[in-house]
């Protein structure tokens, strides 16, 4: 029947690698926010959707240059992240974890419905097309290659920020001991807002990359949300390095699984793998505790 090492399989593997970069970026923002604030943004993928619509309208409707529209999109989603914390998370920060989860679930509903209301259910596309890159028999999609590079660069930048800067160090410190941060002269609320804006900004960056590859519609968040959650749990919630590796594993399942069967099957197989890992290492592959 099918040779295992045919060139199309190789193509699927390589495309999976590229997809992995994108998924790693997706999981990064969620992990950052969880690691610092201990809250899961169920509506994370919907923030990405907001960014995609913003870029679409600024670029395709209002005629801004694409890069400028993307920059504005990142800033907008960053602001949305900060607002999400200030107005939605902050009031329930002392409440039970379930309420924190649910309130962002409510935001998910709201954003999806509001997007339907404002933009309609038809699929939109920014209409930028790139020629595929062909190497021998293998062809790559240019947007995937771009997003792989940008995702890696974004992650590196975040890593350096967290490692080198005072603010980044404080962001890492606050997850370890919230109570004594004021003794360092750090206003914890301000750190939370900044972290939320960063998480939003990463969602915005993901939006820039997704908008090059996918159509925009109000339910697009559902295509990326669940897989992002799985990656985060597999890598250990709040563990950015673990999420990074998990993203590449999942991407292979989706890409190669999608190659042999259908895309949905790729997800299903990834999930089965996920359950298997749960039996083996329930704290996530790289989770501590």
């Amino acid at each position: 029947m099918m040779q295992i090492f045919d060139v199309f399989l190789l193509e699927a593997v390589l495309n999976g690698l590229l997809l992995g970069g994108l998924l790693a970026l997706l999981s990064l923002g969620l992990n950052l926010v969880f690691g610092v604030i201990d809250v899961v943004w169920i509506c994370y993928a919907e923030l990405i959707m907001v960014g995609m619509y913003a870029i679409y309208y600024l670029y395709a409707v209002f005629g801004w240059p694409l890069l400028l529209a993307m920059a504005a999109g990142v800033l907008l989603v960053a602001a949305a992240g900060a607002a999400l914390h200030q107005f939605v998370i902050r009031p329930v920060l002392a409440a039970e974890p379930i309420n924190q989860l649910l309130v962002t679930g409510g935001v998910l509903f709201f954003l999806q419905a509001a997007a339907t209301l404002a933009f309609g259910i038809e699929f939109k596309n920014i209409g930028v097309s790139f020629p595929p890159i062909v190497v021998g028999d293998i062809s790559f999609s240019m947007p995937r290659l771009i997003s792989f590079g940008v995702a890696l660069a974004g992650m590196l930048a975040l890593y350096l920020f967290l490692k080198r800067s005072y603010l980044g160090t404080a962001i890492r410190a606050i997850s370890q001991d919230r109570g004594i941060m004021p003794l360092m002269g750090v206003n914890p609320h301000r750190i939370f807002i900044i972290t939320s804006a960063l998480g939003g900004g990463l969602a915005g960056l993901a939006a820039c990359l997704l908008v090059l590859q996918y159509d925009i519609h109000p339910a697009i968040g559902l295509s990326f949300g669940p897989i992002t959650f799985l990656i985060c749990v597999l890598g250990g919630l709040g563990n950015m390095a673990g999420g990074f590796v998990a993203a590449f594993i999942f991407a292979q399942f989706i890409s190669v699984g999608g190659f042999f069967l259908a895309v949905e099957w790729g997800y299903v197989i990834a999930f089965v793998f996920f359950i298997a890992v749960m039996f083996w290492r329930p704290q996530g592959i790289w989770g501590s505790k």
Binding site: Y166, T169, A170, R172, A173, M184, V186
Partner: peptide, 10 residues
Amino acid sequence: EENLKMGAFL
């Protein structure tokens, strides 16, 4: 050193 750095956050 990062702990010391946090002390100089101001």
